[in-house]
Design a protein around this nucleic acid. Structure first.
Lengths: 183, 183
DNA sequence: CCCTAACTGGACCGTCGGTCAACTTACGAT
DNA sequence: ATCGTAAGTTGACCGACGGTCCAGTTAGGG
């Protein structure tokens, strides 16, 4: 079990990291600064999260939790029940929306990650997308296409379109790409 | 003008970097090690290439030179003359082939790059792809789709398929994706 | 109340990319 | 041939980074 003070520090660290990421350049958010901003020692941060990647992963996981739930057991078209093609379109809409609202966090995780492609989050998303593609049009190389589509969600592209305020252009473009591929 | 000894060192540094990248993990190829392997002082490396990004960019540029030429003035379908859709397919084939043969170099450049999307190489490729898409099917958002397609070329995906020896699966999948989108 | 396992903090470590001032050298002008 | 100088070279040095470690503190079940 995690002690009460430990849990309190965990929350403080996550909150401080979010705050720093939203108000500073990514390169300025070092582990030292996170610790200082959270009001704890540096050792505590590493004791809780292992390393930079662990901290950023925990942050991302806290941000995508509701999406994971909605996909696994929420109402259609995001959740089970709708036809695969609709679920896929809804999923990409949701991911783009979520990613644009949390670009800095996603970027921080990407940068700190040693192998993105094996992170639990990427694995889950890929399994979901790949499964839906296979169900929608079995003749396609679902596994590969899932990778290619997810490649479009890299944080630098997100940042680009976020800065110019064209995030819905990205969303509709990706959506139409998905539906075209499945037809 | 660049002095003769300076030119010799430039070549030695590029050659040493290639060699280190091909035989070691990316994280093990530091600027110090590059300098040592090239038999020059660390200061010389920075004097020639400015910083890590400059070194890696120079390396990438030397590797893609022939492709750039072939695209600009070589024979169809890569060069001018063929219909846009064919040129696009040929271009992605060529890029995948080139990228798989130089994954480590591409990865090193990506990692060292501050903003990939504004690097001369990405800009050139995007302009080319975007132009061809616009010519092939004017109703599409060519600029955006070019970004999405180029997003598939990230080095981590390349590495994944290279390690399992399935690079042609990647090539054919990307090719069919491109032709489907243009139809 | 007390024992101990869990937690904490920050000095410390090796390494990194990058700088700089003192020194050396190539080479065109004379 | 010689020489002045612009260009090139070098490695000690710098601040910052991610990560470790252990002596000291504390929560909380028995």
């Amino acid at each position: 079990m995690e002690r009460a003070d430990a849990a309190r520090n965990r929350r403080a660290i996550l909150r401080a990291t979010e705050e720093l990421l939203s108000s500073h350049e990514l390169s300025e958010v070092s582990m030292d600064r996170v610790a200082a901003a959270a009001g704890v020692g540096k050792g505590t941060v590493f004791h809780r999260f292992g390393n930079r990647e662990g901290l950023m992963r925990a942050l991302v996981e806290s941000r995508i939790e509701s999406l994971s739930l909605a996909v696994a057991s929420g109402p259609p078209p995001l959740g089970p029940g709708a036809p695969p093609a609709s679920r896929l379109a809804a999923f990409f809409d949701a991911v783009v929306e979520l990613a644009t609202r949390n670009v800095k966090v996603m970027a921080a995780f990407e940068q700190a990650s040693t192998d993105r492609l094996n992170s639990p989050i990427y694995l889950a998303w890929h399994a979901h997308v790949s499964g839906l593609i296979a169900a929608a049009s079995p003749s396609l190389d679902a596994d590969l296409i899932a990778h290619l589509l997810l490649g479009s969600l890299h944080s630098d592209l997100m940042l680009r379109f976020l800065k110019t305020g064209e995030t819905d252009r990205l969303a509709t473009g990706l959506r139409s790409m998905v539906t075209t591929l499945l037809r």
